[in-house]
Amino acid sequence: MAEGSEPHPDPTRRPHLGMHAGELDGKWYAKYWSPVMAPLPEHIKEAIGLGPQAPPLCLSPDNAGTLSDVGYQELENGYSLFDDGSMHVATLTCMPRVSPAMVDWWFWWHATEAQRYKLWYPRAHLYAEWSAGATDQSAPYRDRYIGGTSFVDEYVGSALGKLAVRFVHPGRLGFTDDSLDPDAATAICATVGLSRVPLDWGHLVHHVRRVKGGAEIRSRFWMGGKYVAPRAGASLTGELETVAEGLRHLGDGHARAMVVHCSQEMNHLAAFLPDIFDEFRRSE
């Protein structure tokens, strides 16, 4: 997909939560479907209980590349709300036996079928459709999703979002190639917009680095407020301006729901990613 072009999801899609009878028939990965999810980690419960944190503690998108630095930042778990209506969300997830390369593989592999997307978060993911990205199946995993768009339908809390997640090169957010050796680290970077209308409303980074026994993924989201912008030459007039205004002030409830959503989906992924990746590699 060319920069600035307007992707189009399938308008006939009929997403549903969970798996219907027969939906996984013939899928080699069917055994990895598990609707039973682990409890929310204690450090996430504590972060939510603290409420919104002081904005100066938050990482800005302009400094996202500092996630490659050694150590941790002041806000690794929790959220903050800004005067312009935007929010910042941060979560850290430990992923035993996982490598950065496995996460790069997942962000390419999961997006091509709704059933694969549902494996990730059975309680919230409904649908996924892939547009563009690399077609060369021999390319490095990271190169297979950069430049592509994943159209997804998912719940964040009780709110249903129909989203377009456009993956960009990590260099766009300040990461250097030297800091992202696939054996040691990766950074999945994307612009998040709506799939049905040409409107973006945020950015995300999932920075993954090796630690003893596996990896940890440090996720960051910047949503709403000043991040709401028209896409593909659209103008903020009429109905589009009305939609934009609704996204500019997301509020405390949405921020809390984002913390929970990200933590639950990444912890659930960590439970099966090493095994599904190994099985995929053996079949290549």
Score class of each variant (00 low, 15 high):
98 V>Q: 11
82 F>M: 09
174 G>N: 07
199 L>V: 03
78 G>P: 11
117 Y>Q: 01
113 E>H: 12
243 V>F: 00
78 G>H: 02
246 G>L: 01
187 A>G: 06
249 H>T: 05
52 P>G: 10
136 D>A: 14
189 C>Y: 05
128 A>K: 05
182 P>K: 00
20 H>C: 07
230 P>Y: 03
105 W>V: 06
159 A>S: 15
148 G>M: 08
188 I>M: 03
136 D>T: 05
201 W>M: 12
214 G>A: 08
143 D>N: 12
230 P>V: 04
196 R>D: 13
239 E>L: 14
152 V>C: 09
131 S>T: 15
98 V>S: 10
9 P>M: 01
265 E>C: 01
127 Y>F: 13
47 A>T: 03
182 P>T: 04
6 E>P: 05
139 A>D: 03
88 H>R: 09
280 F>L: 11
8 H>R: 15
26 G>F: 07
41 P>S: 11
114 A>N: 06
236 L>I: 07
267 N>Q: 13
241 E>H: 09
192 V>T: 13
38 A>I: 07
224 G>E: 00
219 S>C: 11
88 H>E: 11
225 G>A: 10
223 M>I: 15
127 Y>N: 06
259 V>Y: 09
67 L>Q: 07
221 F>G: 00
178 D>G: 09
211 V>S: 05
109 W>G: 01
145 Y>H: 00
220 R>E: 03
42 E>R: 10
183 D>N: 13
186 T>A: 05
268 H>K: 02
177 D>A: 14
49 G>S: 10
177 D>G: 08
270 A>I: 08
218 R>E: 11
180 L>N: 00
118 K>F: 01
90 A>S: 11
139 A>Q: 07
175 F>N: 03
10 D>N: 13
2 A>E: 12
280 F>I: 15
249 H>E: 12
16 H>M: 09
268 H>F: 10
164 A>S: 05
20 H>A: 14
9 P>Y: 02
4 G>I: 00
176 T>C: 02
270 A>T: 00
97 R>A: 13
199 L>Y: 06
208 V>G: 02
111 A>L: 03
249 H>M: 07
2 A>C: 12
17 L>N: 00
189 C>T: 11
25 D>W: 00
102 M>Q: 04
281 R>L: 14
120 W>D: 00
4 G>A: 04
29 Y>V: 09
165 V>E: 08
120 W>M: 04
57 L>F: 04
42 E>T: 13
176 T>H: 01
206 H>W: 11
194 L>R: 03
257 A>F: 06
144 R>A: 08
250 L>A: 08
22 G>L: 03
153 D>Q: 12
11 P>A: 06
274 P>Y: 02
111 A>I: 08
191 T>L: 14
152 V>I: 15
27 K>F: 15
72 Y>F: 14
144 R>E: 07
144 R>H: 09
203 H>I: 11
139 A>R: 04
151 F>M: 06
213 G>S: 02
66 T>W: 10
256 R>A: 06
229 A>I: 11
219 S>H: 08
43 H>K: 07
158 S>G: 08
135 T>M: 15
123 R>W: 12
205 V>S: 04
79 Y>S: 01
170 P>Y: 12
169 H>Y: 07
119 L>C: 11
248 R>N: 06
28 W>M: 08
255 A>N: 08
201 W>V: 09
266 M>E: 15
57 L>K: 08
146 I>E: 09
